[in-house]
Design a protein around this nucleic acid. Structure first.
Length: 478
RNA sequence: UCCCUGGUAGCUCAGCUGGUUAGAGCACAUGACUGUUAAUCAUGGGGUCGCUGGUUCGAGCCCAGCCCGGGGAGCCA
């Protein structure tokens, strides 16, 4: 038997008459004659043609959707319309049978919800093959972007003892027995007995550690799993997700915004270049899906045009204060179409307000800066007005917040003051404060939600469909 | 966690104001046909109507609780 050639390679070949071998999984077997085979090398299938006088009838019966096969035969120009080349089957081997009665995937359209319950098999569908290929390509593009710029990839801890950040509820990490936890003198759980000798959790952010690295390497980024035990039940939250957190010494908020915009545009362009077939397929899929919707709910741009548009336009930059003015004076607000009417400065923006700015008013990605300090984290640099901090949120159409970041407070006194006001225990974060004690510099960074980026590039509407085995409240299957 | 909405065959769905044996398409099985693109045609098998309890002569349909999904909100990436 000849060596296997990848299907993506065969589909581009013009070596007609050459004997080749392909291996893969049967997508469908039509007409007792045409096998559509996919091996994961691309989203397009190879058509293998069995002649009508093929001697082994029982073997053909085993060509069910999902079965794994090896076919050897002559590569020929296709007589049919849907493909350029095909294989005339000489020998056919079933590598693994697949009982069609029990195999859940059928050659038909399945709902995303159904496939989510079959997450172990859904890679075998064209949609998820495209989504997860793009996930890979985006991850690679992120590393390439930062590496090319001279950033150091830093692995921050996944188990952490600091719960001082207040970035959300945390998952506890412990080896203590649940039914007989050791107690201290006051009757509280005695974590001195625990594996690490203190209470530990899964990380909610690598930012504070990344800042330490930035104080030596100048430019670092993290890219790793992040955990939030929030009981969030939305299409854009997961309990386990991946986050990219660059941190750059000597950068101010303006540099930070530029880095974020450059990075997003770079990786989106990279995906467009590396996965044209996948994006084309997902675009068509979305258009089909939108045909079910009423006209006014359909998107103005298709997936490809949306990505292209995002590359060609500057992100709109404005301050929180300017955003409030726009919202306050909008007809939407005057006609009381917002559920939460914008009245005064200082309130946090609701999703509906962010959506209005991005989707209705500017119609492109928006970077909001200089939020009131009371609605932002302790480590953000205070502005001279005494009211706002150098924060930035990048809002994307359909996704909402894709990036949250800031210039960090590098002045020890101001940082300690802010921590006191917000009841952050300074003793526990002595190591963080040391960066401000020993050669502090202005610096800035941000966090990019990786899955939200994938959602934007693939057009998928639910975070559960862009991570292979999603963890959400009440769901840790597989 | 809150509001809205849904759960009927392997899948996607229909099922009227509560009424006799719960339907369709696809999938599957059998047969036919053959250059098909989710092939087509014929025949056939297939149901704890999410779970538990209640109302009723009678519940897929009404009521309560619970479980799970979807949309929106909060928290945020």
């Amino acid at each position: 038997m000849s060596k296997r050639t990848k299907i993506s390679e065969l589909l581009q070949s013009t070596d007609y008459g050459k004997e080749v071998t392909a291996k893969g999984w049967v997508r469908t077997f039509r007409n007792n004659q045409f096998i559509a085979i996919n091996d994961g090398s691309g989203i397009n299938n190879l058509q293998a043609v069995v002649s009508l006088d093929f001697p082994d009838e029982p073997l053909l019966r085993r060509l069910t959707t999902g079965a794994s096969v090896s076919v050897t035969g002559e590569l020929v120009e296709s007589l049919g319309k849907g493909q350029k080349v095909e294989i005339k089957v000489k020998t056919l081997e079933i590598l693994g049978d697949c009982d069609a009665e029990k195999f859940p995937l059928q050659p038909k359209k399945h709902s995303l919800e159904f496939l989510r319950e079959k997450a172990h098999l859904r890679f075998r569908t064209t949609t998820f093959a495209a989504v997860f290929k793009i996930r890979h390509v985006l991850a690679f593009a992120i590393h390439k972007f930062f590496n090319d710029k001279g950033f150091v990839y830093m692995h921050t801890p996944i188990i952490t003892a600091s719960d001082a950040e207040g970035a959300g509820e945390m998952f506890k990490v412990t080896t203590l027995p649940f039914d007989a936890t050791p107690r201290d003198e006051a009757g509280k759980v005695d974590f001195r007995e625990d594996f690490f000798g203190k209470a530990t959790n899964l990380t909610v952010s690598g930012q504070l550690e990344a800042e330490l690295g930035a104080m030596a390497f100048g430019e670092v980024y993290t890219f790793g799993p992040t955990f939030r035990a929030e009981n969030s039940n939305t299409a854009r939250h997961a309990a386990e997700f991946w986050m990219i957190e660059p941190e750059v010494a000597f950068n101010d908020l303006g540099d930070n915004m530029q880095l974020a915009e450059d990075m997003l545009k770079y990786v989106i362009r990279y995906a467009l270049d590396a996965c044209p077939h996948e994006i084309e397929f997902l675009k068509t899929r979305l258009l089909e899906e939108e045909k079910q919707k009423p006209l006014d709910e359909r998107s103005e741009l298709d997936l490809h045009a949306k990505l292209q548009f995002c590359l060609e336009h500057e992100f709109q930059r404005l301050t929180y204060t300017e955003a409030i003015e726009i919202l306050k004076n909008s007809n939407h607000n005057k006609k009381k179409k917002f559920k939460y009417i914008i009245e005064s400065w200082g309130a946090d923006l609701q999703s509906e307000h962010e959506r209005y700015l991005v989707e209705k008013h500017f119609k492109k990605p928006v970077i909001l800066t200089d939020y009131p300090k009371d609605i932002k984290a302790f480590y953000m640099r205070q502005n001279d007005d005494g009211k706002t901090v150098r924060a930035m949120d990048i809002l994307f159409p359909g996704i909402g917040e894709i990036i949250g970041g800031s210039q960090r407070e590098e002045r020890l006194e101001q940082l300690e003051q802010r921590m006191k006001e917000m009841h952050i225990p300074a003793e526990e974060l002595y190591w963080y404060l040391d960066t401000r004690r020993f050669g502090t510099v202005p610096h800035a960074g941000f966090g990019l939600g990786f899955e939200r980026l994938i959602m934007f590039v693939t057009g998928m509407g639910n975070i559960r469909d862009v991570i292979p085995f999603p963890r959400t409240p009440k769901n840790a299957e597989f």
